[in-house]
Design a protein around this nucleic acid. Sequence first.
DNA 1: TCCATATTTCCACTGTATTGGAAATATGGA
DNA 2: TCCATATTTCCAATACAGTGGAAATATGGA
Lengths: 107, 107
Amino acid sequence: MNIAIKGLAALAQETRLTIFRVLVQVGEPGLTAGQLAKELRIPNATLSFHLKELAHAELIIARQKSRFIYYSANFATMNALMGYLTENCCAGIACDSTAVCCDDKNS
Amino acid sequence: MNIAIKGLAALAQETRLTIFRVLVQVGEPGLTAGQLAKELRIPNATLSFHLKELAHAELIIARQKSRFIYYSANFATMNALMGYLTENCCAGIACDSTAVCCDDKNS
DNA sequence: TCCATATTTCCACTGTATTGGAAATATGGA
DNA sequence: TCCATATTTCCAATACAGTGGAAATATGGA
């Protein structure tokens, strides 16, 4: 529960959501803090703050290589978060066509 | 983008996440404000505030029946939110086994 | 219409998130 | 070792979210 709250809170912020989506889209091996700062035009201090928040929620992974730190999306956490939201959907009963979440499972 | 932020912010709060998950799990036809207040032991004013937040984010749907208002989860919004997070995952390239989000699609 | 009750609004208090400049720190190449 | 530069920490200011008691409002039954 607390993990989910942390993850959702981390993503519920424009700057962080932007950062996260960029990292989701580039996949491996991610981007350095500097590349992110430049591409997204975010001041270093601000970026660093948000990267910490995302890392603390385990939504991104930091990997040091030489003088650079590469950040990449943590897909495991992202999927766990989604699973948490849909857990026991509709009382476990097969859902009708209005329950889109279950359509996916049934299709 | 703003819709996603609203949705994530709405869920990034213990009380609201609890409410939402209960509604996801009961499915249709949902629960009344009073039932939620009683079951979750949330003061009326607090519950009303959070229901408004969730409704404003379109994560729940309110339906009046007689003197009661039934709240239920909005699965369409929930799924749109998830789609937004995984959009263009890994640059559209087929992901390897470490990218769980894409494993689901490939399996 | 009158009443019981389901739900929302009002309000003030408290706490926490976001921001970015400046300074500090860490790293590896020369 | 010394330096260039990548990244983080420090700090103070501003703004907004969460809480719940009390009062107001809405609804339908009698």
